[in-house]
Amino acid sequence: MSKDFTVHLKYWRQNGPDAKGFFEERTLNTVNEHMSFLEMLDVLNEELQLEGKEPVEFDYDCREGICGCCNLVINGQAHGPKGGTPTCQVHMYNYKDGDTIVIEPPRAAAFPVIKDLVVDRSAFDRIIEAGGYVSVKTGSAEEANTHPVEKHKSDTAFDYATCIGCGACVAACPNASASLFTGAKIAHLGLMPQGEVERSKRVVAMVDQMEAEGFGDCSNFGECEAVCPQEISISAIAEMRKDYVKAVFS
């Protein structure tokens, strides 16, 4: 059996959106290299509960890297140390005995803290609501193979479509910009012939919403791409900008 080791945790505590937050520290002696990061937090919470204390709240669901719930900033990096990996897929073999791990919620005005490490990301829903769809009526769709779509186009669209809505891009962006998230949806739909028609309307509405939610501007830092668990390229942002200009001059 692999041996347990010790890590020193420093995690954010905040009792509600308006409460003042603070760091709490605790040493955990029973960490195993096979544990996932979230399982390590489960173990922490078990310990806390056995002492009658309140566990630390953090968000998760699938624990296999696809739902986009888990988004923690670990030692200053959204989703922890590895590229292309969400928090739930970070395993403790990435850490060694005696390491200190600082865990913070994704911080952005548009993502108010709900409790501890859990934040409210409904702003993303509202950005999609503003135009991140194809207006097709259910039941009236035409035969699927009517319009062939070039393979590379559809593959590229797919790359953008894989966004899991985790918000790591916002968390890591020095400006707390949601440009990668928004751009990814615009690029995905814009590249498919089905989404082409509403392209101009979509980009303007989504960009407006993004701004209204209080996300910052994009300064091309590219940090979003580095932390994106789906490794979505900031070309998405370029697509968004191009569509926007087209919309203005059309």
């Binding site: 194809v134 097709v136 769709a141 035409e142 699927a144 779509v149 393979k151 669209a157 498919m192 089905q194």
Partner: peptide, 22 residues
Amino acid sequence: NNIIDQAVAQGVPFAREYSGLL
């Protein structure tokens, strides 16, 4: 069959052949 039609119309990027067909 209608499900596939519906999904494609929504812009779901299913895998495609080089011919551009599904």
